[in-house]
Each structure stands twice: as C-alpha cells, then as structure tokens.
C-alpha cells in the first residue's frame, strides 16, 4: 500500500457517508431523532454535534476494546459505552446550554438507542482499528448532520422566515412579502421534506432507488 492509497482510503471513508452512503437517506438509520429536532437550525446543529461526538468517541472506544469483548455480551457492552457517553453530553448541555437542552427534551438521551450509533459500532468499529473506525464514525456523523441541517434550515426558513434566529425573509406582519408556512413547524412537514429529499437524492443517484416490489429483487451482495 502506498502513501497515496492510504490517504485516498481515509478520504473515501470520510466522504462516502455524506451523499453516496448517507446513513439517514440510504439506510434509514437514526432518523428517529433526526426529524424531531429540526424545527430550527439551532437545535439541529446542537443535535448534530452531540451525535457526531458520541458516535466518534463510541466508535473509538469500541474499536480499542474490540479484541476483548466476548461475543455474547457485545451488544450490552456497546450500549453501556454509548449510554455513558450520552449521559456526559447530556450533563454538559444541561450545564452550559440550559435552554437548548430543554428544547431538545428527551431526544439527547435517545442518542443511546439511535440505530446509527449501534449500527456503526456493530458494523465497522468492531472490526477495525481505532483510527479508521473513528474516521468512519465521524463521516457518518457528518452525513447525519448534513441531512439534519438541510431539513432544519428549510423548516426554519419557510416556517418562520429566519435562519438561526436572524430574519432572512421579510415577514408579511412586518410589512414584507413573506407569509410564514406554519405547517413547516409541525410534524408532517418533516416527513414530507425528508421524503422529498430521499426522492431527490435517489433521482440523481439512480442506483440507490429500491427495486419494484412485484419484480423479484436482485440478490444483494452479502456483507460479512
């Protein structure tokens, strides 16, 4: 392996989860929290940061002790590691960003059961040395963040005419032309936006679209 190869390898591990292998869009991983916190950019950003940190650290820790976890209890060990990290993050948020922490409600705690975290530790970190594992986790965290930020900014922009609390579109109430779509702040809009986002991505990257259900699906490559 030459130097060049290993560097492109790292770059690939980091960037492929952004669009091509996006964990949210392609694998339906971790959307539970992805949608609830996207009513505004601020909460979406906080959540993204919290998840990326937890994911990266958890992947690193699991990868370090990967040779020592007995097969039978590996899920429990992974969950405990993730839960402890989440508790730390939650306490930090409560201490320094009390208001955001209240807005995020129980969703920070739910990072523990976020399929994305367990999915990555289970699928990648368990078989790889710490550095690649953390890079992979960080890339997946970024992919998740990207989706959150896109949806969060759309919802905040169309729902309130603001971005991160700053007025962007002049509101009709204040003499401007923009009437806020209050639907954007309600739950259904998040589903619609994510559905449309999935559609858009899969139209551009046509190979990601799912096979028709009444045709026999092609056998997929087995990952071991």
């Amino acid at each position: 392996m030459t130097e060049l190869h290993s560097r492109t390898g790292v770059w690939h591990t980091l960037t492929s989860p952004l669009v091509h292998q996006n964990p949210v869009i392609l694998q339906i991983l971790g959307i539970c929290s992805a949608l609830a916190v996207t009513t505004s950019m601020a909460t979406a950003l906080t959540m993204s940061a919290a998840l990326t940190v937890v994911l990266t650290l958890a992947a690193g820790l699991v990868s370090i002790i990967r040779g020592h976890i007995p097969e039978t209890i590996r899920l429990i060990v992974q969950i405990v590691i993730v839960a402890s990290l989440v508790i730390v993050i939650d306490q930090i948020l409560q201490a320094f960003f009390a208001e955001l922490s209240r807005a995020l409600s129980v969703y920070v705690g739910l990072i523990t059961t976020n399929c994305l975290v367990l999915g990555r530790t289970e699928a990648f970190a368990r078989h790889n040395p710490p550095l690649p594992a953390m890079i992979d986790a960080f890339g997946n965290g970024l992919g998740y963040s990207l989706v959150l930020i896109v949806i969060g900014s759309l919802r905040e922009l169309l729902g309130r005419g603001e971005l991160l609390g700053f007025a962007v579109l002049p509101l009709a109430d204040a003499g401007g032309w923009f009437t806020p779509l209050s639907l954007m702040l309600l739950a259904p809009s998040a589903f619609f936006l994510l559905g449309l986002l999935v559609w858009a991505v899969r139209t551009i990257l046509i190979e990601q679209s799912e096979p028709e259900e009444h045709a026999p699906p092609p056998r997929q490559e087995v990952t071991r």
Partner: peptide, 28 residues
C-alpha cells in the same frame, strides 16, 4: 401501494416518508 407505478426514486423509503407525513397530518 405495492403495485403502484411510482417514480424510481420515490419507491420504498421515499414514499413511506410521504405516507407517514400524510398520516401525521391526519393525526394532528
């Protein structure tokens, strides 16, 4: 909807989200 002729990108996950959105609208 299994036999509906959906655009390729919307098949499966995309359509499931839109349906969930519509149901969510009903539940609101």
């Amino acid at each position: 909807l299994a036999y509906a002729d959906l655009p390729a990108g919307l098949r499966g996950l995309g359509m499931a989200f839109v349906l969930t959105g519509l149901m969510s609208l009903g539940f609101s």
